[in-house]
Design a binder for these strands. Structure first.
Length: 490
RNA sequence: GGCUCGCUAGCUCAAUUGGCAGAGCAAGGCACUCUUAAUGCCAAGGUUCGGGGUUCGAGUCCCUGGCGAGUCACCA
């Protein structure tokens, strides 16, 4: 059996010697309990109100040491803020002071008892009468001035990133406020939070490639959900009027600055509602989450200034594409003619397999990046909207919108398809696409069609990407910076 | 998956045309009783991501593998 010390590198070994020294003196370097009278931020607030709390006990991680002989200034941080400690040999006694210099390092958690005073330099400081080790750090902290910038280390050892990069902690606090604001809004408006299966015998509710897994006892394949949609709408058949779920979805696709294989989605469904109700929900959620994250609706995202004050603009996909490319998708409303028109206009568009996907591609290439102010894009091709009702009077497009801000999509909503026959036909069309090689085509879901046969009320439904909303509201430009443990490349 | 770029001390970064692998911080020693990236002095710290090749000589050039980043494709 190798010894623990043999696993340590030179720097860690130096520090481990201090663990042994502490133990040799009868001091536990990892005591079971700690004591704290004031979080550091509270202590500072108290002082600013002009109060003197007398003797205080604070805890924190040592982040800097400045020693000048028989006095030492120490910075500690807890989860709330920073505080300077003042250690003086005359106060602590020679032995305790020497032990501090010898055995305490940057990164250690300590507990200090003393009284508040303000230094000559004007900084609020605790004069320490007694100091104890709470948790000895064997591994050294990242460098204090430049911090930790290596992205791989930041993501793989996120605790180091959080430890030294305060702004990173601020992003994740903001993420939590966004989530809480979203939940509070939905709860307040009668939406019931529910949980539906992450392991599904059929995957559906979105056009995406799934992760496949296997249940040994059941001897069958299961899929990690790509969406919650079909399970949630079944609940409305069961007479819940408003439901929502915030959960991880899994899609077996590429990884980049805006895509991770697991991501957080909010989906909500409102019986007796429609597309316009979902627009209201989107506007309200943007407002509430922006206020929670930033306290204002005028936000900066990269080079863009964005005003999230409702009402948001709305534009039909046909009009948006016509304006940016000169192509009228209602004139060129077949796969062949639209393809020909794209070629004629010399547009660079990847080959697609049907009119709907081609429209979507032209849109995402030539329109999406230009949508900076919050904009609802409506009237999506029915072909790429297998769960949305067709628009009355024009079956080519569906009652669907997506919300765009700062050149990116944040949500997707339908007037939900509740006609079981139409839904069955849409599934059949997806089967045709699958047969032609569309890896993202829906699977036929007979059980879902059966549910619709029992009657789904007229319903508005919405899905929003929580990670992306957080990116927008924290001015982060990689999804990895709003997810604590992002899947890395390869 | 394609293309481009990167990987040097615990951390942040240097290293000229291919010519002794360096600095700051951290850690070690000494000095210093109001510091703020404390300061001064001393000493130490390396499989230059792994493997192979070219060369008298490789951190540097070539091949190959690994891990990332950006970008394109797919997608939210």
């Amino acid at each position: 059996m190798p010894e623990f010390i043999d696993t340590l590198d030179d720097l860690e070994r130096d520090r481990y010697q201090k663990v042994l020294r502490l133990r040799a003196r009868g001091v536990n370097p990892y005591p079971l309990r700690s004591k704290r009278t004031h979080p550091l931020a509270d202590l500072r607030a108290l002082h600013e109100r002009g109060e003197d709390p007398g003797e205080v006990t604070v805890v924190g991680r040592i982040t800097a040491n400045r020693w000048t002989g028989k006095i030492t200034f120490v910075d500690i941080r807890d989860g709330t803020g920073r505080m300077q400690l003042f250690l003086r040999q005359d106060n602590l006694g020679e032995e305790t002071y020497k032990h501090f210099l010898k055995d305490y390092d940057l990164g250690d958690f300590v507990q200090a008892t003393g009284t508040l005073f303000v230094t000559k330099a004007g900084e609020l400081t605790v004069t320490v009468a007694d100091i104890q080790m709470l948790s000895k750090a064997v591994a050294p902290m990242p460098e204090k001035f430049h911090g930790l910038t290596d992205k791989e280390t930041r993501y793989r050892q996120r605790y180091l990133d959080l430890m030294v990069n305060e702004e990173v902690r601020a992003v994740f606090r903001a993420r939590q406020r966004v989530l809480t604001a979203m939940r509070a809004y939905l709860d307040r408006n009668g939406f019931i939070e529910v949980e539906t299966p992450a392991l599904q015998p059929l995957y559906g509710g979105a056009l995406a490639k799934p992760f496949t897994t296997y249940h040994n006892e059941l001897e069958r394949n299961l899929y990690l959900r790509i969406a919650d949609e079909l399970y949630l709408k079944r609940l409305l058949v069961g007479m819940f009027e408003r439901v929502y779920e915030i959960s991880k979805d899994f899609r077996n696709e590429g990884v980049d600055a805006t895509h991770l294989p697991e991501f957080t989605m909010m989906e909500c469904y409102q019986a007796f509602g429609d597309l316009s109700d979902m627009m209201k929900v989107v506007e309200d959620i943007f407002v509430e989450c922006a206020m929670a994250a930033q306290g204002k609706l005028q936000i900066t995202y990269g080079e863009h200034e964005v005003d999230l004050t409702p009402p948001f603009a709305r534009v039909a996909m046909r009009d948006a594409i016509l304006e940016k490319t000169g192509i009228d998708i209602y004139v060129d409303d077949s796969f062949e003619t639209l393809n020909a028109r794209i070629e004629e206009k010399n547009l660079r568009v990847e080959p697609q397999m049907n009119w709907g996907k081609l429209v979507e591609k032209v849109f995402s290439t030539y329109v999406e990046p230009t949508l900076i102010a919050p904009t609802f894009v409506i009237d999506f091709p029915t072909e790429i909207s297998p769960f949305a009702k067709k628009k009355p009077g024009d079956a080519r497009v569906a009652e669907r919108f997506e919300i765009y801000v700062a050149g990116a999509e944040y949500g997707n909503a339908f007037t939900e398809l509740n006609d079981p026959e139409d839904q069955w036909q849409r599934f059949m069309e997806q089967q045709t696409n699958r047969a032609r090689g569309d890896a993202e085509a829906q699977q036929m879901d007979d059980d879902y069609v059966q549910a619709l046969k029992h009657g789904l009320p007229p319903t508005g439904g919405l899905g929003m990407g929580v990670d992306r909303l957080t990116m927008l509201l924290t001015n982060q430009h990689s999804i990895r910076d709003v997810v604590l443990y992002p899947q890395l490349r390869n």
